[in-house]
Amino acid sequence: MSLQQSTTTTTGAGVAGPEAATAVGLAGSMEPPKRRRFGRQREQLSWRKTLKRDWQLYALVALPLLFFAIFRYLPMLGNIIAFRRFRPGGSIFGEEWVGLRYVEMFLTDPTFWAVFGNTLAIGSLTLLFCFPLPIILALLLNEVRSRYFKKFVQTISYLPHFLSIVIIAGMLMQLLSLEGTVNQIVRAVGGDAVPFLQLPEWFRTVYVSSEVWQTVGWGTILYLAALTNVDTALYEAARIDGANRWQQTWHVTLTGIRPTMVTLLILNIGAFLSVGFEKVLLLYNPLTYPTADVISTYLYRVGLEANNFSYAAAIGMFEAIIGLTLILSANAISRRTVGTSLW
């Protein structure tokens, strides 16, 4: 059967019975207008009708599909240079096969494992702080009685989300400079000024706290929406059952927003390895490489500063595959355990 199917999909001649015909029909639906001759009989007829009725709709997606093909899917295929020798200026798919040479190269590269560790460390710290803090802030906002005060706090706390990462980096450099506000506080409590951005031991703190500053307020939006949907009758029922304030929060509020929490957790886990590349690139310097250098910045230097395109592509592909695996497994686990999933 599998043999027959593969023949039909490659030749397009629907000669292999009903099951194969369905398979071809599915394959045909991948690219609506052009492939219609691949399907036989019923499929063909209805495609013709569909096309006649909806050709204008299909025409509308032509340009967007071209965009996805060129700027999203072509680069995915371009990852093949991870297994091929690449000559700048040559074909984007490289010149000749070299097998797993570049994969072996990064697996035995100590710097790669160092930056891998840094990525995990920064990723986990970010998750540890940037996931729960919006929930806490949303709970605090939810308790506010005055509508105006609530609006005011919301408006202010969303603001950092709209800043360019370059501005964030600039602000950090001013605040953390030897004469900046943070060091004034350090001096005021009797300490010595610390050159925060030059010391590897401070990088993660700086990174994570600025991430908190920028994302926490905006992160409350979905929780606040979920909170307004929690049935108020549940609180009364809990009060009658003798639940105090904390127990109400724990059993009613947090249960009510659990689907939102799980969804955002999955998304956060999916973004785990793609540690804010641009921010690290702007904030790190050779002095802080020992803790600040992450996979994406390393492959940036290897690829675009040292022109090792294939090697960097191999690292990049590894990162992308782990990211995809993470999000798929987080999604599968949450579907099984709590019944919430992204799709």
Binding site: Y73, L74, M76, L299, L304, F309, G316
Partner: peptide, 15 residues
């Protein structure tokens, strides 16, 4: 699908 998987920096640059 492109939300969860992308070509990455190098292939994009080459392209």
């Amino acid at each position: 699908f492109t939300m969860f998987f992308n070509g990455g920096l190098i292939p994009n640059y080459v392209l």
